[in-house]
Design a protein around this nucleic acid. Sequence first.
RNA 1: GGCCCGAUAGCUCAGUCGGUAGAGCAGUGGAUUGAAAAUUCACGUGUCGGCGGUUCAAAUCCGUCUCGGGCCA
Length: 291
Amino acid sequence: MIIPDSDPNLPQPFYICGPTASGKSSFALEMAEKLDGEIVNADAFQLYQGLEIISAAPSPAERALVPHHLYGVLDPTESADAQLYVKLATPVIAEIQSRGKTPVITGGSGLYLKFLTHGAAPLPTGNAALRAEMDSKSIEELVAQLQQLDPVEASRTALQNRRFVSRALEICILSGQKASDIRDGWEKQTADISSRLRGIVIQRTREDLHARIALRTKAMLDGGALEEVAAMSAISSNCEKAIGFREIRSLLTGEIDRATCEDLINAATRQYAKRQETWFRREKWLVPEVV
RNA sequence: GGCCCGAUAGCUCAGUCGGUAGAGCAGUGGAUUGAAAAUUCACGUGUCGGCGGUUCAAAUCCGUCUCGGGCCA
């Protein structure tokens, strides 16, 4: 994690957040020039190589203007997660600072940013074998088990959300402690960090954002997204979740037509943007940048 | 011109024997600490195409008009 003001002589990072298609990338270029900075990616899917078009990563022309970091650094067969992201980003950011430049951290992946700014709670890493075992159980079984091991955590977890229930259970099993205890401790330790961070969240009207999404989807489909998806043979299940990936696959196999594909991508993107807005609305330290 | 089918939420449609309507999708709000572009929760008033009639009561039955679609001329 990036500790703010750890060394007052170093330039402090500046964060640029906002929903997809809000114009973060071009805003980042402006800020990088103003702050004498370099851009660091904070987007879960722009991390991957070969997904540049459907993840709307900055173009080569944009990257030539200012140094860009952590774009296309992972093979699509790999599966990133928030912890890996922090591992990758921390040294890159420190290196930029050591050269006297300002890290301009730009992206829309709320959880990744949260881990970067507030750190990762000392929770055990996910275990594939255990997850497979839990996946074979019913949600009722998982809930019952969690209620037994950690009733406090169970009472504050959305018990219909399988993902959340199994993660809480996983933490208890792997750590041998109560997930609620670890989380509470972490919350106390990191309570004051937000006030020392600086960054903005780009805000647009829904109408404007939806129009921008529609334009971008069209441009993607016309600008090589089909070829990009067709070229992806080996891919992690993680990458398959990229918005547009499945839709374009269906278009390529002829299951749906172009107009349907475009509509589906637009709807999925709008829904994602809404979830991002909900997330960033809670991050009170982000100053709204109304565009 | 004649006949038939359709018209109900932004969209696609359901609606039984008449008792003033409900699904999916879209949309809106929320949750969120190692899968997060993921996962998940909540939210359903709309001239039932218009007008008239029958009836205690019409989305539902009857008449008529309008607009689609089809068939026959």
